[in-house]
Nucleic acid binder design. Sequence first.
RNA 1: GGCGGCGUGGCCGAGUGGUCCAGGCAAGGGCCUGCAAAGCCCUCUACAGCGGUUCGAUUCCGCUCGCCGCCUCCA
Length: 450
Amino acid sequence: MLALLDTATGEVAPLEPRVPGQLSVYLCGPTVAGVPHLGHARVNLVWDGLRRYLTWTGLHVHFVSNVTDIEDKIIAKAEEEGTCTEDVAARYEALWRETMARLGIEAPDDVPHATAYVEQMVALVGELVRRGAAYEAGDGVYFSTDAVPGYGLLARQDPATLRSGARVDAGEAGKRSPLDFVLWKYAKTGEPAWTSPWGLGRPGWHTECVVMSLDLLGEGFDLHLGGLDLSFPHHENERAQAVAAGYTFARRWAHNGMLVDEQGEKMSRSVGNGMSLPELLDRYDARVLRYLVLQTHYRSPMSVSEESLESARGAVRRLDNFAWETRDLPPAAADAEVVERFKGRLDDDFDTPGALAVLMGAVRAARGSTEHAPALAAAVRECCERALGLALRARAADLDREVAALVAERDGARASRDWGRADSIRSQLAAMGYAVEDGPAGTVVRHEGA
RNA sequence: GGCGGCGUGGCCGAGUGGUCCAGGCAAGGGCCUGCAAAGCCCUCUACAGCGGUUCGAUUCCGCUCGCCGCCUCCA
């Protein structure tokens, strides 16, 4: 069984599913108010990897990831673009889906939308008010963090120290404690609004995930995932509401590390140093990004730079070359020892860099042993593709007539030792996107790499 | 101010109380090749600093220095 660090306890512990053999997972999804950035790529690649791995080991994973389609940033964007929030949300969600597909992320089993859950959110807020865990203030209904014992669990700090560090937010003057947060925002004129016992308004951000995760996964679901920056206050506040309303919430929490730039500074929306994901995918094979993510431990900060991307590209090429070299090997069962070592690394807090190292070792070993090559190659392919979602490409070229003619001509030139002609055809083929390799059987071409 | 994390060879990035160890990229040398490409071999002999524990520490403890994150929107 895989062991994972639990953010709530700070300890690596085996992930014991609520129902044996089945794992219920919730991943905080995007607010669709802008172009997906590199940070989104990391979260989704990391947890897509975990999902694939667990599925590969035989678990049935129920994977839910939401879309926040009503939120202040969406309202601001709609105003800026002179359109409505539905239009903004729909457009950016479409872009989101497209970009995730380009990244090779498996679509979640369920994608709940906040706007489809407003009624249930209102009910939850009502329950919190009824239980005395929420109160009305100047501009909305607020959650009283004092009502929850152990508030600060995910930040691993007690409420007093959190309070002492809190910055005062002038816009939320009616709050009883700086840690309190809004559950229901009263609508200003012109803003999208829903009816509620407290008048027209819209839900606060922290409420939707509570309602949606409990609805789709049920109480005490297994694992709640997200970026480390969401652990506090977002996830803490989700937990606080659920607990205050009498629900058992997520049993486990895991968070991935942030992205940092070359200076080691976090990439974030507020700093504005994030990179557009679609733009990056125009320049790099999505597998390069996946490799870069996998070769960094999920909890470590990950730096993205031209250099780190080029390095990952080299590694993907190496794997593609291996797939190419071994394309005609007879089918074989995956080498059991490699698979065991691979799983051993992943089961220990999802050590993907260690697991990749095992596979790279198998690549080298396969090249050095014709006897074991089929089993080793099968293990590499199985682990890379099925367990981690990193598809290998042999990049075999199906030759059209023009290319086939050039290849034949080049073989002829080489046979007659006309090196000038052979080299010029090679450059011609390279310009067309084909890599040329001369083997004992003559010229072989394949598509250029990642 | 509080809490947490990190400092590994040219770069990225795992890991470990002790003998060889990551792994990838890059660079240099060699083999192979008509030349290449791909591949293979070798080299570049790392663990911030100072103490302590230990037969032995990069790995455990303490301190110092440096960097970063969270306490505000964020994945």
